[in-house]
Design a protein around this nucleic acid. Structure first.
Length: 216
DNA sequence: ACATTAAGTGATT
DNA sequence: AATCACTTAATGT
């Protein structure tokens, strides 16, 4: 477990320009470190959250899931970001409406909800940070709705691949067709066929468990 | 060599 | 665009 001085360093590197020093120190003293592996589920639908995570390194995928296990990808959270929605879950004591899955080995800092609520009153920078987070998530949510409502599946697939590449900083995407289908709430067969079309157009190259983007 | 899993294909709705 | 039923290819034991 990291000592609080090193937690402070981590916090300063990610949030030093946004939050005041006093707050950062307080945060460091109450933060719990959580390291996650690829595909590890951080939050499940229906979970009661007692701690709110801020992603420090890596990235986390936020998706909606119904009781049948059907899923749809909403957006990603990257370094220095939090999902302000989880704040509501904590303070209003409601179950999580979303599922959070780690996309790569990631480092999260977890903060007990009672502090987060108090910081809202005590620190202007914290209020701005949280409001900002709400705003970003809202924009991303609208983008997701646009994609689902107005884009064809082949366009969505391309967007998905380029988002993935940007996020993980690599043109090599290590995913099976099945996992992509799950994220886009489609079926494997359809995704396989669309990917094959993209390969024929020269946009990508297909391998087992791997997709190589050509021109991004 | 055999079993398992990922990906490809044609036909049907 | 989804589903079924089947084939082929790649990988693990």
């Amino acid at each position: 477990m990291l000592r609080s001085e090193s937690k402070l360093k981590i916090l300063q590197s990610q949030l030093g320009y946004i939050l005041e020093a006093e707050l950062l120190e307080e945060m460091a003293s109450v933060a719990k470190v959580r390291e996650t592996n690829t595909d590890e589920v951080v939050v499940n639908v229906g979970d009661h959250l007692l701690m709110i995570p801020i992603v420090i390194e890596g990235s986390v995928k936020i998706s909606r899931e119904n009781p049948n296990g059907d899923e749809i990808l909403l957006y990603y959270i990257e370094g220095g970001d939090t999902c302000a929605m989880s704040l509501q879950c904590c303070t209003r004591k409601i179950d999580s409406q979303i599922k959070a899955t780690s996309m790569e080995p990631s480092l999260l800092l977890m903060f007990p909800s009672q502090y987060m609520e108090r910081w809202l009153n005590d620190y202007k920078s914290w209020r701005e940070f949280i409001l900002n987070s709400y705003h970003s998530r809202m924009l991303e949510l609208m983008e997701a709705i646009d994609a689902i409502a107005f884009m064809n599946l082949d366009q969505r697939l391309l967007k998905y691949l380029s988002d993935q590449a940007k996020l993980l900083g690599s043109l090599e995407i290590h995913l099976t067709h099945q996992k992509i289908a799950d994220d886009l709430h489609s079926s494997r067969v359809v995704i396989s066929r669309l990917l094959k079309q993209l390969e024929n157009k020269g946009e990508i190259k297909l391998f087992r468990n791997k997709i190589l983007l050509q021109n991004f």
